[in-house]
Design a protein around this nucleic acid. Structure first.
Lengths: 219, 219
DNA sequence: CTATCATTCAATAAACCGCTTGAATGATAT
DNA sequence: ATATCATTCAAGCGGTTTATTGAATGATAG
């Protein structure tokens, strides 16, 4: 006598939820949203050990969220389903709306300033067409090189200070990074606004920009 | 020195995911999607013990997915955010698309017959207006009494057999139950089709029908 | 005030998860 | 074949989660 089909189904749904229930795996998925990666690359980016990264990736694979294929001696993992990003975004949305702790952390990121509404991707595209916006890509240079929004300047939080004198104090600035989970854009906007600049965050990040079918540039 | 804000945020997102990563809690949420309930009622419906139910509900509350308020000596829990249903539906979708195991279980439910596409709620509403459809509500009578689609007949799997002679063999039949997680409608459709009747499943269930802003009837 | 009832808390054992370590695998290059 | 390299496997430790049990709480009714 097997267990009920209902219980079996719930167990499978729970398996998917469990896959996204560990911070380490959310980090890995955020990286994979940028594009396919090998185990070592993912381990580097996330700060996990190689063996640990491999294990987490296998958990994700068992839940059907990623696939792997061999390329020579390296194993390349990629997102299996774009809707995984939607799942992660819903997690974020629910957490932001319903958990006081999250609001507190986000307020801390913006340095006490009022959180500003993000700029929609449609808006940004229109501004690009007008040529009336300065775009900052806050991701590490290697990710910028792979793909970025056309016209964006690659800046890290560390060298943002040095860039300040070069920025037109009247320009509208839009900062973005990996996606909704990436906080560099939050931090950049906070730093820029503290200096009186008109900076805002892009809604989502590069994967979302791409998912809209918009063009990207490569180095 | 506190941990990084990024890690703290991921921990909170993971908390939400963990909340929906246990079959028992998915069952509770499915019940709560029908409407607010007390602890004892939820324990009855899910087959969990009272203490266990209470603990799971507190886990859900910590994740911000449900709220509770006291009514006399009973504590009534309700869904805190409609998007929780979207989260659960996304879990189901990802599982159905990417896990072979799920497809196998669903094929088992339909008794080997080809799975039929569900009827959309728009379609059903149009058919109701035409009066050209027989609607079966497969939920337990107490849930039917609280709210059901106007014109629906309340049938349980157990007494479906007895009802068969009364059904017009040429009628279009649409069965529904609690929502996407409820398998009674699947099973009813399988049983009816095996007897040559034209039965299909409604997409989603009563909570989704309601969320569309459509009317419901009460006993 | 006392009794009752629904719910929660506390303590426990068993199972599971996440990370580390070191060895094993499997594909390539010499 | 042998060496090398990226990845995976296996085992183990500490911490967390789950279900159970029985006691404690808190609101209401008499």
């Amino acid at each position: 006598m097997s267990i009920s089909p209902k219980a079996a189904l719930l167990e499978e749904y729970a398996l998917v939820a469990r896959a996204v229930s560990a911070p380490a795996r959310l980090m890995l998925l955020e990286q994979l949203a940028q594009g396919p990666r090998g185990v070592e690359g993912l381990a580097d980016k996330t700060g996990l050990t190689i063996a640990n990264t491999s294990q987490h990736l296998q958990t994700l694979r068992r839940a059907g969220l990623v696939t792997s294929n061999r390329d020579g001696k390296a194993v390349i993992y990629s997102l299996n389903d774009e809707r995984t990003l939607a799942l992660m975004d819903l997690l974020r949305l629910l957490a932001e709306r319903n958990l006081a702790q999250v609001e507190k952390i986000l307020r801390g990121l913006s340095g006490g300033a009022d959180a500003t509404e993000p700029v929609s991707r449609d808006d940004l595209a229109a501004r690009i067409a007008e040529g009336s916006v300065t775009i900052l890509d806050m991701r590490p240079p290697d990710e910028f090189d792979l793909a970025h929004i056309p016209g964006a300047m690659n800046v890290t939080l560390q060298n943002l200070e040095r860039l300040l004198p070069d920025l037109d104090p009247d320009a509208d600035i839009v900062a973005y990074c990996r996606g909704p989970y990436c906080i560099y854009a939050h931090q950049a906007v906070a730093a820029l606004r503290k200096r009186g600049l008109k900076a805002r965050r892009l809604e989502g990040g590069l994967p979302e920009w791409r998912a809209d079918g918009r063009e990207v540039a490569t180095a």
